[in-house]
Amino acid sequence: MSENTAVRVDPSNERMLKAWDGNDGALWAKRAQRFNDGVAAYRDTFFSAAGIQLTDNVLDVGCGAGQTTRDAARQAADGSALGVDLSSDMLGLARRLAEEERVPNVSFDQADAQVHPFPEAGFDVVISRHGSMFFGTPLAAFANLARATRPGGRLVLLTWQPLRLNEWITTFRTIFAAGREVPNSDLALSDPLETERLLTSAGYTDVLSTAVDKPMYFGQDVDDAAEFVVEQHGGRLSDLDDATRAEAIETLRADLAEHQTGRGVFYRSAAWLIEARRP
């Protein structure tokens, strides 16, 4: 258990708790709208697959600042939506925004979805927009979520495809490596066959992964995008000398300029829309 929070986490998720209930979570809370804008092109596809009905009870895993949770609650106006995340900063923002936007049927808990005691068969739909890729023990996590999904209920996830198909990830990793070895490990749930085996073993069925490609937004112009990207990734340059850091930033700005459009700075991204059912 973390020393600065009472949330119960599995030992395999302690590192995630430290990050998301620390500096990473603080940054994502500060920049919540920009992160939401970045993946906004996926919204309609994601919620169309979720098929949330008026009386559904929805669970949003890794909800962050709660945009998807509030959207789900609006669609389930006679039901409810619960968002869970490890970040107390983002959850605080989620609660404030729900109050400001007058969404009464939404709630938020700081919880590790891998071990949290959700009500058995308590949810009609479980969703996660890029929040389900970080479990320390994925099989245990999805088994817990399957237990919380009612028979006939649905699981809908948005995850990233392999890195080679995500221009934004490969570009920024290379630039901020600044000549050092470039991390090349894919995120979890990037292989459809492995995902099908995982979710089937966890208790879901009818697993379907559909490739979705959308432009990802980073800012209105080079200055705006560079400020955002450096704020997110610049820590990787902290152990380098001033000249090398400056060169990396200039390389970034040049690349951002090549991706400038009349609507802002965009990079190619590729996600999996993963759907499954609880038998």
Rank of each mutant, 00 (worst) to 15 (best):
D213Y: 15
Y204W: 06
F46E: 01
L199G: 06
T55L: 08
E194K: 13
F142I: 01
G179Y: 13
P138G: 14
T137R: 12
N105T: 03
R197W: 08
D37V: 06
N23W: 04
W160D: 01
A81K: 02
D60E: 15
P162T: 10
A248M: 11
S209W: 04
V7K: 02
T159S: 11
L193T: 15
I127E: 00
L59K: 00
S209G: 09
N4K: 01
F142T: 00
T68A: 13
L189Q: 09
D24Q: 06
G122C: 07
R8K: 01
G79H: 10
M16P: 09
E101Q: 04
A65E: 01
V182K: 15
G51A: 03
V265R: 00
D239P: 05
P119I: 12
A19Q: 09
A50I: 03
P119M: 08
G219Q: 14
D78V: 08
A257V: 02
L256F: 08
A81P: 09
R278N: 05
V222E: 06
T5C: 05
A6M: 15
L252V: 01
S12Q: 03
A140F: 12
S269N: 10
P138W: 11
Q114L: 07
P215W: 15
R8E: 11
T244R: 03
D241E: 14
S209Q: 06
A19G: 07
R173D: 12
A49W: 12
D255Q: 04
G179F: 14
D191M: 13
S190A: 09
N184M: 10
L54Y: 08
R197K: 09
